[in-house]
Amino acid sequence: MFPSVVPSVSLNSYLILSAILFTIGVTGVLIKRNPIIIFMCVELMLNAVNLTLVAFSRYQSTVDQTTGLPPAHAINGQMMVIFVMAVAAAEVSVGLGILVSIFRNRTSINVDEIDLMKG
């Protein structure tokens, strides 16, 4: 087992970094017109959420008094990260498949020119 590293960085720093990354992703989704870059921004948002989950699982505030070990549920945040990654992989594969399918039928895939459902 590796020696444990005790960070002096507070939980709040990780949460604020995560909020900034999430906002960059939201802004990218709002302002970009290339759907591939929009997908990348969605990935960035998912990664920001993963960072909060890992940070919270690291900074569980209660430690078992008798053993001095972290509680057994402290690993749950990392388990959720595994599932978020699996869902993100599925989402990207289907989304890029849709993009390829759109590109076969139209010459451009820019989101401001895909307006068939506008009515």
Partner: peptide
């Protein structure tokens, strides 16, 4: 959005009223 999130986090407190900005991390291996 970033202003709202960061200002919320700056004033955040956890349930047992320990300030999130001073919460000690758990010590354990990787």
């Amino acid at each position: 959005l970033v202003g709202v999130l960061v200002s919320m986090l700056a004033g955040a407190h956890s349930k047992d009223s320990a300030d999130l900005s001073t919460t000690a991390p758990l010590t354990r291996g990787f």
